[in-house]
Nucleic acid binder design. Structure first.
Length: 313
DNA sequence: CGGGTGACCTGCGCGC
DNA sequence: TGCGCGCAGGTCACCC
């Protein structure tokens, strides 16, 4: 489940089930799913066994569960990853790569199945470090970003001010209260690169992938190869506004699902695919002007656009 | 530094 | 029915 709305749907589903739970069992069926785990710090299963889970946090497309050991279980869904909550003893999901058995004080025992057809996703136990700006590391669904509300003694934010090392280079996403629009727009204005490349650069702004980049560019009427530094300040602001609007609307509909691949923790699909204006709609008329939409090769993938509404300037 | 390419994977739908 | 091809929502390493 790749882009921000789909990952947030997973985070939101996971949070109530795992917060306060203890990991009582770990089964790794596919070691390639541990690609991002640094085994020098210890074996994946050993680092999880008997640990308590404090929360479910997300920045961009990265998800992590802070643990009572001071580390975090980092989850990245890649292109085809799913996290499914199952009752103990459930039938094995196809492409099941890792299973965590958790025990929650209220909900009892539960299986957390990491399912991933293509194995581009991964799980890893990672060390934590303070955020560079001293703010909450990501979104955990807690009011006020959990500031001072996590009951941890000592310095400020506790786990909420810490970020897994492998996520530290990822920029804040545009729905994060700590995201600075002026700083992002200023950085954009310094980039000579094409605007879509910039939107997909997770170190500049995170959470945007191929679908929502195309949709936001369509909404703002910008060509994907328009140099970032050539956008007027007003156009830059409009584009960021379009990005936020699209992400929020997709979130409200449970994300985008073309097939059973992109589902929440209960295996249910989102409905935003009905709202897509350009992604995957090549050959169909532009909803704005009726010109036929086109698909073009870009960055080893596809860009979808209206050749009339989105001209290179 | 920017930008291009390939690697990492499995599976589905299509045309022949 | 089978086979090859192109396609898929991401990220990273390496090259020039």
């Amino acid at each position: 489940m790749p882009e921000l709305p789909e990952v947030e749907v997973v985070r939101a589903g996971l949070a109530p089930a795992v917060t306060g739970a203890v990991i009582v069992g770990v089964e790794v069926f596919e070691p390639r799913s541990l690609r991002r785990h640094d085994s020098a710090s210890g074996h994946f299963a050993d680092l999880l066994q008997s640990r308590g889970v404090l929360a479910a946090v997300r920045r961009g497309k990265f998800l992590w569960l802070p643990l009572d050991s001071g580390r975090a279980l980092v989850v990245h869904l890649g292109m085809s990853g799913q996290v499914l909550l199952r009752s103990p003893g459930s039938d094995t999901d196809r492409h099941l790569r890792i299973r965590l058995q958790i025990e929650h004080p209220e909900h009892g025992e539960l299986w957390v199945n990491f399912v991933d057809q293509r194995i581009f996703g991964s799980m890893a136990v990672d060390s934590m470090q303070p955020t560079r700006d001293g703010l909450t590391a990501g979104y955990s669904g807690l009011a006020g970003g959990a500031t001072g509300a996590d009951g941890l003694a000592g310095s400020g934010l506790g786990w909420s001010g810490l970020i897994p090392s492998q996520v530290a280079h990822i920029a804040r996403d545009p729905l994060d209260p700590g995201f600075s629009a002026p700083l992002f727009l200023a950085a954009l204005a310094r980039k000579k690169t094409g605007i879509k490349r910039a939107l997909l650069d997770q170190t500049l702004i995170s959470g945007i992938g191929n679908i929502y980049a195309d949709e936001a560019l369509f909404e703002a009427r910008v060509h994907y190869e328009q140099p970032a530094d050539s956008l007027s300040p007003a156009k830059g602001r409009a584009l960021l506004g379009a990005v936020r609007s699209i992400l929020n609307r997709a979130l409200a509909e449970g994300g985008t699902s073309f097939d059973a691949q992109y589902v929440n923790v209960n295996g249910q699909s989102g409905y935003f695919s009905h709202r897509l204006n350009t992604y995957g709609r090549q050959g169909l008329p532009c909803p704005r002007c009726g010109t036929l939409l086109v698909r073009q090769q870009f960055m080893n993938r596809s860009s979808h656009l209206c050749p009339r509404c989105q001209r290179l300037r």
